[in-house]
Amino acid sequence: MTFDPAYIILTTASLASIYGLLAIGISIIWSSLGMINMAHGFTFAFAGYGAWIAAHTLSASAPAVLLAGIAAGALSGLAIAGVAFIPLYDKPNFPLRSLIATLGISLLGAQALLYVFGPRVKALPRIFGYGRFHLFGIAITADKLGTIICAPVVLLAVLIWARTSRRGLQIRAMMQNPEGAALVGVGLRSTALAVMALTGGLAGLAAVLLSQTYYVSPYSGLTPLLKGMIVALAGGLGSIPGALIAAVCIGFVETLTAVTLGGKFVLITQFLFIIVVLLIRPRGIAGMLEQTRE
């Protein structure tokens, strides 16, 4: 590989898009529901399988696979909300118990996927085709370009929707103060379901996009979950701008490491990066900017 700035920028952008999709989901769940969703990786894997089933039974066209992935992700998000949030949110010791419940779901879910689909990995169809494009003088594959276009568009749409719509105001209000939200008539449970469906859908999109390069397997959600967590942590849990900045930073670190040191060291440098960030700012890049839920 050559040390090419254009290549680094494009790779960073595609990684940052996927990390951003996951990290924003984790961040929104944390700040609006007060729960760390460790089952986000399961949502990722589940959405991958959902897209795979759709590709094999319905059609292998891009919209069908993408929509199936998003729908499966949203479904999984709703299931997680039903098990880990709704029965627990007004019980004592909720944050820890919901964390453990989501960990339990991720243990259970991975085993269930293994049981149903078997240990063999599945490959999704190339929904963006096999073409190569030349951009800024370097070759770029279609799936990378699709990711770079698709993820930011969806993210932007979601963010604009959150800024302007009534539902968005409802989610933002709950992120800031759940009791206050209840006092203006926001239903905690319906909002929780909406949030989990939304973030699950984002994770599903990320799953389909990432599965263009990697395979779908029962444990395929683990690494994306960890990277999403790293990004959400480095950005500051609960901060959407922080998560976006951190996604770009981590994507850049990953690309740079892969280019200069080799792929083996990616996790190590990412960890050093996040440890340094957290030691300097224990609440992440943006954790101090906004006063959100502690």
Partner: peptide
């Protein structure tokens, strides 16, 4: 006050 710290006054009134 059960206030939403990060929201603007206008958002608040809308909520």
């Amino acid at each position: 006050d059960a206030i939403f710290h990060g929201l603007t006054v206008a958002d608040h009134l809308d909520s």
